[in-house]
Design a protein around this nucleic acid. Structure first.
Lengths: 159, 159
DNA sequence: CACAGTTATATTGTGCACAATGTAAAATAT
DNA sequence: ATATTTTACATTGTGCACAATATAACTGTG
């Protein structure tokens, strides 16, 4: 209580930590959504959603991979990937085939249209760069910091 | 073609930019998911999802606000907030009442249980800090960078 | 070989996230 | 004052994201 008899709460460190603006996770969360909104009109032209675009990026680098491999690279599980991949298959960008060596495995391969889409996608990164209003160097430095944080968080999960 | 007659693709800047590992947006996206997974067990004890926790953080700072105000602070629209708020109301953490001054407005107020939950939530930030394996200073510096990026992306959307 | 345990993918259910649309109330224009 | 526009919220439909569970295929051990 102060001299007027009114309760004055002491601002503890715990109180400060609960402020929305102090949360790095909210910064990351809201930035992810902002990216999503910037990507949307660009990816609409390719007929892709943002997670589908990430899958295509992964496949353009390496093809004929198991769902599990994709999941590890993108940090996604089969509950997310299975329906997403079925939609990409319906769009005829990929093919899903059971491995003959190990029938548990479903291999994901690009169709010719899937390969071809890469050319149209080349214009995307520079549009994002422009929207970010940063230099490539700044973005790469930030990326490295964020990835380091992500890897520490994932490491903490494994313990 | 090289001297062996095999196609050797020139690695252009556009090719590099399409590499998954070079995408800052994937770094942000995957870090948001990593945060979500770290928060999950902590928030389970509070009976909250991560977006619900963000709403509660906002309400603990300021109460009796319109859905629109919450949406602007959290960058979310009514399509996301309306069902989320109904779940918080069902959990008796908040109350939703139409404003008498402007009947379009729905005001969100904390219940006593909603206020009380704040005490249990005080333990959350330090657990996250521990999982991040960073100092407070490092995290705050990163947060400021990420928020600056988010604000630039959002500004680009407005144009 | 049998069988217990593991692995890869699929399915189900819940909860965001957002575009598009609807509705009623308020503000503004004519 | 009536008509038009804007605003706040709700609803619907699509697509993640993930926990929990199911299923079939593989692996290792006795």
């Amino acid at each position: 209580m102060d001299s007027m008899g009114i309760m004055v709460r002491k601002q503890t460190a715990a109180d400060q930590a609960l402020r929305l603006d102090n949360q790095i996770c909210f910064a990351v969360y809201s930035t992810a959504h902002a990216f999503n909104r910037v990507y949307k009109p660009l990816l609409d032209r390719l007929g892709l959603t943002y997670p589908q675009y990430l899958v295509m990026l992964a496949l353009w680098e390496r093809d004929d991979v198991a769902v599990k491999d994709l999941g590890e690279r993108l940090f996604l599980d089969s509950g997310t990937l299975t329906p997403l991949l079925k939609r990409l298959e319906a769009a005829e960008l990929i093919r899903r085939t059971r491995s003959t060596e190990d029938e548990r495995v479903v291999l994901i391969a690009l169709t010719p249209q899937g390969h071809a889409l890469r050319e149209k996608a080349k214009a995307v990164p520079q549009s994002i760069l422009a929207a970010s209003d940063c230099t490539v160097g700044e973005l790469l430095a930030m990326k490295d910091e964020i990835v380091a944080l992500r890897d520490r968080l994932n490491a903490a999960l494994g313990e």
